[in-house]
Design a protein around this nucleic acid. Structure first.
Length: 436
RNA sequence: UCCUCAGUAGCUCAAUGGCAGAGCAUCCGGCUGUUAACCGGAGGGUUGUAGGUUCGAGUCCUACCUGAGGAGCCA
């Protein structure tokens, strides 16, 4: 018999259907068996009555264990006491496999245990909800760029020696050479932007930072648009439209999932353009005031990069994401365009998510002058020959251009209101955790 | 790399320096509307590892291992 998915059940009320899935949980009351079945599309409670099913079926209902794979024939109908909730009257059941004792019981578990059993943890309601939101975010990201004239131009994951020179890279053997896993598609994006105008890349990136916090993965997905002829203001506008679109899509299509993870959506509903724009200089003042009022432990000095407590404090002053722009050039990557009015500042922007979720977007205008980029490469002690192709972009039709990168996992954590990014991807890679 | 906290049954946790326990899971029995179902019973332990203090250590001390989240660094 043709398989029906649980999500499609409202269309099949009163008719006999076949559900193929797994036993999520089981309860019984004498001659009644309550079997919660999941099939990936949803969960439904099946009811087997001893007097209505075969002896074989009843004994199967009794012996079937949590997460056993089962094929069930039954008739769906509304719950007698709960409108809008559906149940399945079980007519017959075939056990595909009786599951061994399942480690994840319907009880609380610790982080270590759940992470060791991540391959099984994915079957739970909460993980389903989060990963469905992730899927919606990724679809929204693609739709946003695809519908706005951007071309997907993916960038390589194996990269040669030097890239940005800022963060720590993973080194891998590449035949007789050494290669590094990409920490950003940024530089290659500049080449494709010069070819296609508006581009984006979307893929995994790798950081070998020994960061062990709720915001860090060693492998994460980043989407990076790059726009030829764009200035800092253009990219800030793109950022706020982009984020607002994604949040809107999740609110529109993933209400149930947000409810499942107990996300208070009132904060998300406020995410509409424009976002507050703050110059770095003003951020310094706010942070120093915060310190004077005893709300921040350390006094922030002009010239430093924002630490995590600083970001949290700044974002807590606003309900929307905050765009902090014009950082000191010294704390940013070598390719940032200097502010013509104050060359010690870079034309860059970080978007800080509300509620303490930190930086979700980093970007800015890229330096377009050959001489300037060359100087910066030397100042940063980077090997010029590795950047010959990058310098070519400044020789052959150099234009102002700008772009940004958004870490998907941080966006998912923020939109879902999660404590930790480890739940935002099926198999998170973190410092000291490579399995499963 | 540094700081803080934690490690006891398959899981989540109790146990004043004095007999190592409960709930869930598993197995057996009961219950015709259960919702982390419930009720009764059973099995299940080298208390992370190695030393030390003590008549006596799960508990106190030292080192190490593992995990957690914070700093730095980063998205």
């Amino acid at each position: 018999m043709k398989q029906t998915y649980i999500s499609e059940i409202p269309k099949h009320l009163g008719g006999e259907i076949t559900i193929k899935g797994w036993l999520y949980n089981k309860r019984s009351s004498g001659k009644l068996g309550f079997l919660e079945i999941r099939d990936g599309s949803g969960i439904i409670q099946g009811i087997a009555s001893k007097k209505d099913v075969s002896e074989q079926c009843w004994s199967d209902c009794e012996r079937v264990t949590q997460e056993s794979s089962v094929i069930i024939i039954g008739v769906p109908r509304e719950h007698p006491k709960r409108p809008g909730v559906y149940e399945l009257d079980i007519k017959d059941m075939q056990i595909v496999q009786v599951a061994h004792e399942y480690p994840i019981t319907p009880k609380e578990h610790g982080v270590e245990f759940l992470m060791d059993n991540r391959h099984l943890w994915l079957r739970s309601r909460r993980q389903h909800a989060i990963l469905r939101v992730r899927h919606e975010i990724i679809r929204a990201v693609r739709d946003f760029f695809d519908n706005n004239g951007f071309i997907l131009c993916d960038t390589p994951i194996f990269t040669p020696a030097a890239c940005e020179g800022t963060s720590t890279l993973f080194e891998v053997q590449y035949f007789d050479d050494k290669a590094y896993l990409a920490q950003s598609g940024q530089l290659y994006n500049e080449a494709t932007a010069a070819a296609f105008g508006k581009v984006y890349c979307f893929g995994p990136t790798f950081r070998a930072e020994k960061s062990k916090t709720r915001r860090h993965l060693t492998e994460f997905w980043m989407v990076e648009p790059e726009v030829a002829y764009a200035k800092l203001d253009d990219i800030m506008e793109l950022s706020e439209n982009f984020i607002s679109y994604i949040v809107g899509r999740v609110l529109e299509n993933r209400k149930e999932e947000l409810k499942q993870v107990e996300r208070d959506t009132t904060m998300l509903e406020k995410i509409t353009p424009p976002f507050p724009r703050l110059e770095y200089d003003n951020v310094v003042k706010i942070l120093q005031l915060g310190h004077a009022e005893g709300k921040l432990e350390n006094r922030f000095e002009w010239g430093g990069d924002l630490g995590s407590p600083d970001e949290t404090y700044i974002s807590s002053q606003f309900e929307k994401p905050v765009m902090v722009h014009r950082y000191p050039a010294a704390v940013k990557a070598f390719y940032m365009e200097p502010d013509p009015e104050r060359p010690e500042l870079a034309l860059c922007v970080d978007v800080l998510a509300p509620e303490g979720y930190g930086e979700v977007i980093g970007g800015g205008e890229r330096a377009s002058s050959l001489e300037f980029v060359l100087n910066r490469i030397h100042e940063h002690g980077l090997p010029e020959e590795a950047f010959n192709w990058y310098l070519d972009l400044r020789k052959y039709g150099s234009v102002p251009h700008a772009g940004f990168g958004m870490g998907i996992e941080r966006a998912v954590a923020w939109i879902c209101g999660l404590e930790h990014v480890r739940e935002t991807t099926p198999f998170p890679r973190m410092l000291y955790r490579l399995k499963p």
